[in-house]
């Protein structure tokens, strides 16, 4: 469905990605794990054309997205919930969600989707009139995910949704990702929390300094010795 081929990205001469190939199939959760600076976020940002690609191709359902503007990629149904939440602090919770549906014209359906998001995150409903900047970190993360859902994405990309959250909230977020997936969504999940991510993923990729070093079904990677040692903190 979403296919990334031979992706190269560099920042001022420093290579961040060196030939990444990723394939995301419909209705699957695919995860990208790796250490800090491995190039996980760069991959997502390159897919959305937020950073320039040196080389490579992004394809969605056979259509070439490589050189489309970010806003047009969003219109094709690819949504990214960025790292660090990035909610619009000066807008209310509801306005943040409305902006998520910015490209859509189907008012009735937008209303329905908003109710869905509120059902998924009841906390947001309670705070719909509050400025997003006044929310707690966990609530902001919920809002960022909800806002991306408002795109009604065909592929939902989540960049570190559990970053900086209390352990209890981390569990909540992963439960919600599973729930979103069970509603028929395709998800590309980028995580430092490799264990949690692989547990729910159908397929996983392991990134190291800009290169893919391993790939396979989530369960398989969970049991892989190398992954265990490097990312799951388990001794051999």
């Amino acid at each position: 469905m979403l296919k990334v081929t031979n992706l190269h990205v560099s920042y001022g001469g420093i290579k961040a990605l060196r030939g990444i190939n990723i394939n995301i199939e419909e209705n699957k959760i695919v995860t990208l794990i790796g250490a800090n600076g491995a190039g996980k976020s760069s991959t997502l940002r390159a897919i959305m054309n937020l950073v320039k690609k040196d080389q490579g191709r992004v394809e969605y359902d056979g259509e070439d997205l490589t050189n489309l503007k970010t806003m047009d990629i969003v219109k094709k149904g690819i949504a990214l919930s960025p790292e660090g939440r990035r909610v619009f602090a000066n807008l209310t919770v509801e306005e943040n969600l409305i902006l998520g549906a910015y490209t859509r014209e189907d008012r009735g359906e937008i209303k329905k989707d908003m109710e869905k998001v509120y059902a998924l995150f009841p906390r947001l409903k309670e705070r719909s009139w509050q400025k997003a900047g006044t929310l707690s970190g966990g609530e902001q993360q919920m809002l960022a995910v909800g806002r991306a859902l408002m795109v009604r994405p065909k592929v939902l990309m989540l960049d570190e949704p559990s970053l900086g959250l209390a352990p209890l909230l981390v569990k909540d977020i992963f439960d919600i990702i599973k729930e979103i997936h069970s509603q028929g969504n395709t998800i590309l999940l980028v995580e430092q929390n490799a264990k949690k991510a692989l547990e729910i993923a159908d397929y996983g990729y392991v990134l190291e300094t800009g290169e893919l070093v391993l790939e396979g079904p989530g369960q398989e990677l969970l049991n892989n010795e190398r992954v265990k040692e490097a990312y799951l903190g388990e001794a051999k």
């Binding site: 959305m48 937020l50 503007k69 970010t70 806003m71 969003v74 219109k75 949504a79 990214l80 960025p82 990035r86 619009f88 602090a89 000066n90 807008l91 306005e95 409305i98 902006l99 998520g100 910015y102 490209t103 806002r147 795109v151």
Partner: peptide, 21 residues
């Protein structure tokens, strides 16, 4: 919606573009 987009843009270009603005 245009006004909301303006307010969003005043805080964060990149995320605004991720909304398809």
């Amino acid at each position: 919606k245009t006004g909301m987009a303006m307010r969003a843009l005043s805080k964060d270009y990149e995320t605004a573009s991720l909304m398809g603005i």
